[in-house]
């Protein structure tokens, strides 16, 4: 279980998270929903211990930080760096190989398996700069799978990818969830949240609501986090921010 209590984070004088209290149980699959600047990415970074909170703490009852696999936003990655898909995905095994250890046959098999799972088996020798947006996202998923962790943290994993890629990658997440892993993802696509995520956490610097998706994703809560949407809007895939 991940226990977050009274978490408060400031960036210089700017309040990013205000008194967050929440528990995420083992094996849960939670979508974090909120408008831009609501503190979603800050919450993820706080869970991973990358940000020092001014107040409050994050504790793990069983798995520690070493059991977290992180999928960052793709725009934070240097796409022109001369590195192949295989080398990029292999970075997922850093905790096993570190600075010096060699890549074993088992890890190579695992790497091939991860690439197959996301449909990139034929592209392992390609440079990452040659990949399309969808292929790039698949590669990030392969690296996350390579980490073989119990808690998966995904920051906007479906940004700028087509429907087919979203479906394929959603299947990968579902398989991980079925295997008992905890999944926490920042997702903007509300129909996707409604269709696939059993739990939702809605934030606007502080927590607005947390619970089963069909109950929590109500008009009132959506309005409170900055979305002016109706459930019809969500069902009709008319997802937008503040104008629907």
């Amino acid at each position: 279980m991940i226990h977050i209590s009274q978490l408060t984070v400031y960036y210089k004088q700017l309040l990013a998270l205000d008194d967050i209290n929440v528990e995420i149980k083992e094996g849960e699959m939670v979508a974090i929903v909120g408008a831009n600047g609501a503190g979603k990415s800050t919450l993820l970074k706080s869970i991973m211990g990358q940000i020092n909170a001014q107040y409050g703490q994050v504790t793990f009852s069983r798995h520690g930080l070493k059991q977290i696999a992180y999928l960052p936003q793709s725009q934070m990655i240097e796409r022109q760096f001369p590195i192949t898909v295989k080398e990029f995905v292999a970075a997922g095994s850093w905790r096993k190989t570190g600075i010096f250890k060699r890549f074993t046959q088992d890890l190579l098999k695992q790497l091939s398996h991860c690439l197959e799972q996301v449909g990139l088996a034929q592209s392992e020798q390609k440079q990452i700069s040659e990949l399309s947006g969808g292929q790039f996202q698949r590669m990030l998923f392969a690296r996350m799978l390579m980490q073989d962790a119990e808690i998966l943290i995904l920051d906007e994993p479906f940004n700028s990818v087509d429907m087919q890629t979203t479906r394929d990658l959603m299947k990968v997440i579902n398989d991980c969830h079925q295997a008992g892993k905890t999944v926490i993802a920042v997702v903007h696509d509300l129909p996707l949240v409604k269709q696939f995520f059993p739990e939702v956490l809605m934030i606007a610097k502080s927590i607005v609501a947390k619970g089963p998706t069909h109950q929590t994703l109500s008009e009132n809560n959506l309005s409170a986090v900055g979305f002016q949407l109706t459930n019809n809007c969500i069902d009709e895939h008319l997802v937008c921010e503040g104008v629907c």
């Binding site: 960052p72 934070m76 990655i77 760096f81 990029f88 690296r143």
Partner: peptide
């Protein structure tokens, strides 16, 4: 190895090391 990862994806590398 660390330098390459730090160059390509610092946010990911910070999460594992």
């Amino acid at each position: 190895r660390a330098l390459v990862l730090e160059c390509v994806d610092p946010a990911f590398f910070k999460s594992v090391s």
